[in-house]
Write a protein that binds this DNA or RNA. Structure first.
Lengths: 131, 131
DNA sequence: TTTTTTGTTATATATTTAGTATAACAAATT
DNA sequence: AATTTGTTATACTAAATATATAACAAAAAA
């Protein structure tokens, strides 16, 4: 597994998990249609509790990134079947706002922030198009 | 005051405060050199505890956005005297990463995310240049 | 100079969130 | 038939969040 938990981080474990799984999917480490490890096995791998992983999976489901088949597994939804809703776009904008505002106030130019965004995008984009 | 707290939000009050003050500065509602309201008066205005406001101010100081003069007040630092450090740039990038990754996985294109960033920037930039 | 305001520090308490531990269940898979 | 799966429930600990109150000393205002 590509996931590493920082136990002393201020970011909750289940949130670290959610982010890293999202980044893993964006990076192409995991493909749409694939099943995530079972909550028990991933918990054992990471040395955390089953419920912590379960909470993360349900957060991913709420975000529309996976769907959970009861008593079977958590499957990554394909970007094709995912229609980007207005609600989701607004959520992304809402998440973006404080980050951009902080950058501005700290004195970053629009170009600097834009370049950073492109860099982050490029770093993740690597294997997202079917190679 | 331009600040509105959502008590039922999952975002802690002190964090809502921090974000809205940052956005207020970015928007030009408050200028560099100006003093933020005292922790007691702002707390009374918002109907929250003094220590909640105090925590937010110290978070803003840790971010390098204000400085607190003991027993006097919290002053907004000017963007001029603020040199954007590499550390701060890396922090912004670190904040940007999960937002961009989530957008990608949900199926947003690079252009869509870039346009959102520009929109957020424009919305805030309004009065930041001395009019 | 006296009074008021300020951030600071301390203690105490209540609530919520985060995380773990264990167990049992029923459906799905092997 | 046995195992694995997500689900649900209960119990517990620890940390984070937020409030309440009080006192202090320095700064600012009267």
């Amino acid at each position: 597994m590509f996931i590493e938990i920082e136990p002393q981080s201020t970011v909750p474990i289940y949130e670290q998990l959610t982010r890293q799984i999202i980044e893993g999917i964006a990076r192409g480490d995991m493909q749409a249609g694939e099943t995530l490890p079972s909550v028990r096995s991933l918990a054992a791998d990471l040395g955390v509790n089953m419920h912590t992983v379960n909470k993360s999976y349900h957060e991913l489901e709420a975000k529309g990134i996976i769907f959970i088949r009861a008593k079977s597994g958590a499957v990554i939804r394909s970007a094709d079947e995912r229609v980007l809703t207005l609600e989701q776009l607004q959520q992304i904008e809402k998440n973006l706002k404080p980050v951009v505002a902080e950058g501005m106030v700290l004195g970053a130019t629009e170009k600097q922030i834009e370049d950073m965004m492109k860099k982050v995008f490029a770093d993740l984009q690597l294997r997202v198009e079917g190679v």
